[in-house]
Write a protein that binds this DNA or RNA. Structure first.
Lengths: 145, 145
DNA sequence: TGGAAAATATCGTAATACGACATATTGGCG
DNA sequence: CGCCAATATGTCGTATTACGATATTTTCCA
């Protein structure tokens, strides 16, 4: 069906529109998040680092390594990121007693306040964006060629 | 309820975990997308530009301005992006007849092939990531404090 | 105990988005 | 009808940030 709407190789026009719409919704959320973080005086990636540390679901405190995993960045990039954040007074580094190669990370009071404020705003925004995001995602599943 | 799990200001630990998990799922998808684009020889943003052009849901061909809107970047950033893409043989620019300030954008054959390949892979990946993403999103709505 | 592996760190480099500014074109209005 | 503000795109220098290559320290195990 709908062969006139199909590109030579490819997908239907509807599928491109659906994919593009999904990415647009994603960008809307990410743009909101970036603006909110900047408004609080944080680069977006530092906000993500704070959230990853505070929301880390593990036994002991997260390390530079866990941060690199959760943010999906190279280990040495996490090193640089955390160095900037220590500089900015957002986190503290504590060398592990058990394994002295590791460095545990903890939020400062300042960072906890900022993160609480940002997270509240994000939950609210996500609540309002959720329908559009879910709908855009679901739309991709239909019209499978 | 659960006051011992509540940070001073702030949200419950569960909420931080849920927010962090949602962002992690988002990053997984974005990392897949970036890897796929790079594998096809494209910077991620150029892939997004191709998709935004191909999936533009409007009457006439998209312009530099529409691209800046859909990608949520500044107009002059869209100018630079499109210049790089013309250079790379991915798009062509066609000054509008109606309004000679505007420049319409169209994919080259090469770009159509690349986009078809990437979009197929993305639809497949999204199909597999969709449950986790939807679940992470839905989880945010529960546990509202 | 001697090295391979792991964890973090350093330095130079590249990509890309932005701010400030410039140019061209359009449309409205006195 | 001509002038000017607004619109659309373009140019240039700058700053941020992530990466590759490489180094250092510590741990683990054969």
């Amino acid at each position: 069906m709908d062969d006139k709407n199909r590109d030579e190789d490819g997908l239907t026009r509807t599928q491109y529109v659906a994919l593009a719409a999904f990415r647009y919704e994603l960008r809307r959320f990410l743009a909101f998040s970036e603006t909110a973080a900047h408004g609080a005086g944080l680069p977006a990636q530092q906000h993500q680092a704070l959230l990853a540390i505070a929301g880390f679901d593990g036994a002991d405190a997260p390390t530079v390594g866990t941060l690199s995993e959760r943010l999906m960045i190279a280990p040495h990039t996490a090193t640089e990121l955390t160095a900037r954040m220590v500089e900015a007074g957002l986190i503290s580094k504590l060398p592990s007693r058990q394994d002295r190669r590791k460095v545990h990370l903890a939020l400062t009071d300042k960072a906890e306040d900022l993160l609480a404020e940002l997270s509240t705003a994000h939950l609210k925004e996500l609540k309002s964006l959720e329908p559009a995001l879910t709908a855009a995602l679901a739309r991709l599943g239909r019209d499978r060629a």
